[in-house]
């Protein structure tokens, strides 16, 4: 598929360059300029995390730190109050995001399978209903959602952080689209072989959805890793807070050193950078989709 696309475009390239000789220069300048724009702030985060605050705001800025000021990282982990809550908060984020990724994949795939491969009354209605929830912005329902969570006594707990995101309408949509093309003959053959419906889902259908599962899992993980608004409402005690809350609290404290701020930001980004490094094709493939329910 990719090979085809490449050849498609590369066949056009010589024409373009022959007809407009200066096009190449302009295009490459623009492409590289954009790289500078997108990458510079990230490099700034990296280099500033090793600097003292005086070095960070120095004019002109020196891109290579004179000393590797590791105290920043210690300060970031320790916090201004010396509570070391950062570690707990980043573990919270990892736990919540991982759980949401798993439940989203599981529930979305079973629902998508039910809608795609079973005929029952009201099937289309159910699908439309789930799709309709994509139109409801999270910001519009956060306060009633908070009250629902409180009435279940789930505020300030992992349950409260996780339950409202157990599955996403977009996930159901994606799984349903993917499974619609799944060959029904496989399912029928498995039925003839005497497999139960749940076994068929778990042993035949689920393992065959790997690419879409990866995409959806990453999307859900990232959504929670980035979620600020909901934890802001639900996580009241320090030990239930997630990493975006820690960063925003750290940023507003007067005592916070700029270098320590960047160190905290850098540590908070490492899990996503690792994931992106390892699975970039799923990130980039999966970005062609609408992210619903993002805080």
């Amino acid at each position: 598929m990719d090979e085809l696309r490449t050849s498609r475009f590369s066949s056009r390239v010589p024409q373009v360059l022959k007809n407009i000789p200066w096009a190449r220069v302009i295009i490459w300048t623009a492409l590289i300029g954009m790289v500078v724009f997108t990458v510079m702030p990230l490099l700034f985060m990296l280099t500033a995390s090793f600097m003292t605050s005086r070095q960070i705001v120095r004019m002109p800025f020196n891109w290579i730190p004179e000393t590797f000021f590791v105290t920043n990282f210690l300060q970031a982990l320790r916090g201004n109050d010396g509570s070391w809550i950062f570690t707990r908060n980043i573990l919270n984020s990892l736990f919540v995001a991982t759980t949401v990724a798993i439940t989203t994949v599981l529930i979305a795939s079973i629902t998508g399978y039910g809608i795609a491969k079973f005929k029952f009354k009201g099937r289309n209605f159910v699908f439309m209903l789930i799709m309709a929830t994509m139109m409801i912005p999270f910001e519009a329902i956060m306060i009633p959602l908070y009250m629902v969570t409180t009435s279940f006594k789930m505020q300030d707990s992992y349950m409260g952080l996780i339950v409202p995101f157990l599955v996403s309408a977009f996930g159901v949509f994606q799984m349903r689209q993917y499974l619609t093309t799944f060959p029904t003959e496989f399912l029928d053959a498995s039925r003839v072989d005497g497999l139960g419906e749940f076994q068929i889902f778990w042993q035949i259908v689920f393992p065959n959805c790997a690419p879409v599962i990866a995409t959806l899992g990453i999307l859900s993980f990232r959504g929670q890793w980035d979620n600020l608004l909901w934890p802001l409402l639900v996580a009241q005690s320090e030990k239930m807070k997630t990493i975006p809350l820690y960063i925003s609290k750290f940023a507003e404290e007067k005592l916070t050193d700029e270098g320590a701020m960047m160190a905290a930001a850098l540590i908070a980004s490492i899990p996503m950078f690792i994931m992106f490094g390892a699975l970039s094709k799923y990130f980039i493939g999966g970005s062609a989709v609408y992210e619903s329910r993002k805080g």
């Binding site: 980035d226 975006p244 996503m272 970005s287």
Partner: peptide, 10 residues
């Protein structure tokens, strides 16, 4: 794409 990977608070 890299900036899209980090969280909006960062």
């Amino acid at each position: 794409y890299t900036p899209a990977v980090i969280s909006s608070v960062v």
